[in-house]
Design a protein around this nucleic acid. Structure first.
Lengths: 273, 273
DNA sequence: CGTTAGGTTGAGCAATATCAAATTCGGTGG
DNA sequence: CCACCGAATTTGATATTGCTCAACCTAACG
């Protein structure tokens, strides 16, 4: 079984690793995750659809290797990619209820997935999967955070900033899963795909990439990206890692802080009525 | 108690109404919702912060009247609004876990809210609130759908389309709650705020609004918006209501459908490995 | 080697931003 | 009722960013 077709080797025990970072797993749960990961792979070729928008989701699944994306296409063909799915990511399980998939999902490169109906069991609060359920809630939270990042990028950042921010985020996500090291990772996407993620034209993505290359910030050759000046990239995109589980404790939740850009905001007036 | 300060009168029993549309409520649950809605209001003046980004969320709450928004501000003051919160919407409860608020929340007009720690109880799966929990999951799903809409708008639609799409969505949300009728509703936002929602400049929002006025599509005077040609607006923005609970049953989930804009997609190759 | 997908480059253009100056509007004090 | 104030809207002029189109290049692959 020589499966080096894709550019990345998924670290084995991918699932246990990912979930362990979120919660303490029971032995049973670890066993379940290994069972899932050991299942027969479903294979999709680049461009192939895994889920059709507005269609019922039969069984959630998990990416084992390769990249996929969630996207929506407008009537005239313009496409917006909402999110890139990396090894370890869930397909069709972003929140607890799921009458229909709100986006289409398709493979970006040769993709292998496994079914994971156990996700539904955990959502159904089967007691022996309670930690899994907690982890899934945390994943939903992370996903939401990434969606919000995406909104800011698309709404208020320049092409250069978008790219910087997105590359930072991607590096962050990949290294959390052991898929990046030394500020370097496989980025098996065409510039066209990147354009559809960042809401730009291919040409402009190309030029922006070249600018970053020219500035010695990144190197991007044959599907491999190296971040030569991580600080510069982070700063340019104003990226800050989600740090979701470390809360900046604040006991006076609603009083002042951060400048709200041209809002007259009378500061102290929260009162009972 | 003459509280006509805000431009809109919330229909009483707001919460029971909203949740009843999502699930069948038990008597207990109805009672709980009424209790929550009957609680003392917290009042916030326009611009005031309800939640600070990256800050722990003490208790979730619910908007009773007025509008708020979730937003993030970049270092140089650019602001992106993620979502507008309307009467009946939850504050600080978008997914089950919530280590910290991923966005800031602030009032856009005079706002009244009530605390709703019961949301946490429902999440904690207290059996007598199980329908509420289900409804909350559905709300989380809706929210996600709106976030995805927002991503498409910002990423791939023109100013005109964004406005059309957003107004359609807003009308949809408001009329579900009995806050719009006759294609007319209160829209108590400044053009500056609309700009921060749609990722545009104030000036451009102004011009786009005028264009729509000139075309006889909308009327917008003193905080009241009338959609004169709903079909045109829907079509221009390519808006389609979420229709989340009506699934287009599809038994062959992954095979063909919708043109994927310039993707060579070999159609039939899903195989076991 | 011809084909093809993807990447690169240049030139002109369109959409949207920015800046600055009115103008209108909803109060508010006299 | 009037004069005035600040906020919001409107308008014009100009600047930029990023898009489109079209050509060309390159590497992989049969």
């Amino acid at each position: 079984m020589s499966s080096s077709a894709t550019t990345m080797q998924p670290p084995s025990d991918l699932l246990v690793r990912r979930f362990s970072k979120l919660v303490a797993l029971s032995d049973t749960e670890r066993k379940v995750l290994r069972l899932v990961e050991g299942r027969a792979r479903l294979t999709y070729r680049p461009g192939e659809r895994i889920l059709v928008e507005r269609t019922e989701i039969h069984a959630p699944s998990i990416v084992i290797s390769g990249w996929a994306c969630e996207s929506r296409v407008l009537a005239d063909g313009r496409r917006q990619i909402m999110n890139v799915l990396l090894p370890g990511d869930l397909i069709g399980a972003s929140v607890r209820v799921h009458p229909a998939s709100p986006t289409g999902v398709s493979a970006l490169v040769l993709l292998r997935t496994v079914e994971a109906r156990e996700i539904k069991s955990a959502w159904r609060d089967e007691p022996h999967l309670s930690n899994l359920a907690a982890a899934l809630d945390m994943i939903a939270f992370e996903d939401k955070a990434f969606a919000l990042n995406h909104i800011v990028r698309l709404g208020r950042q320049t092409a250069y900033e978008r790219l910087a921010h997105w590359l930072s985020e991607l590096y962050h996500r990949l290294s959390e899963r052991g898929l990046a090291s030394d500020d370097t990772f496989q980025l098996p996407l065409t510039q066209e795909t990147i354009a559809d993620i960042l809401g730009l034209s291919v040409v402009h993505v190309n030029r922006t990439l070249q600018q970053m290359r020219g500035e010695g910030i990144i190197e991007f050759k044959s599907g491999q990206l190296s971040i030569l000046k991580p600080e510069v990239l982070l700063h340019a995109g104003e990226f800050s890692p989600p740090s979701p589980w470390t809360v900046e404790l604040a006991d006076s939740p609603a009083i002042m802080s951060e400048p709200v850009a041209a809002t007259p905001a009378p500061a102290e007036s929260r009162t009972m009525l």
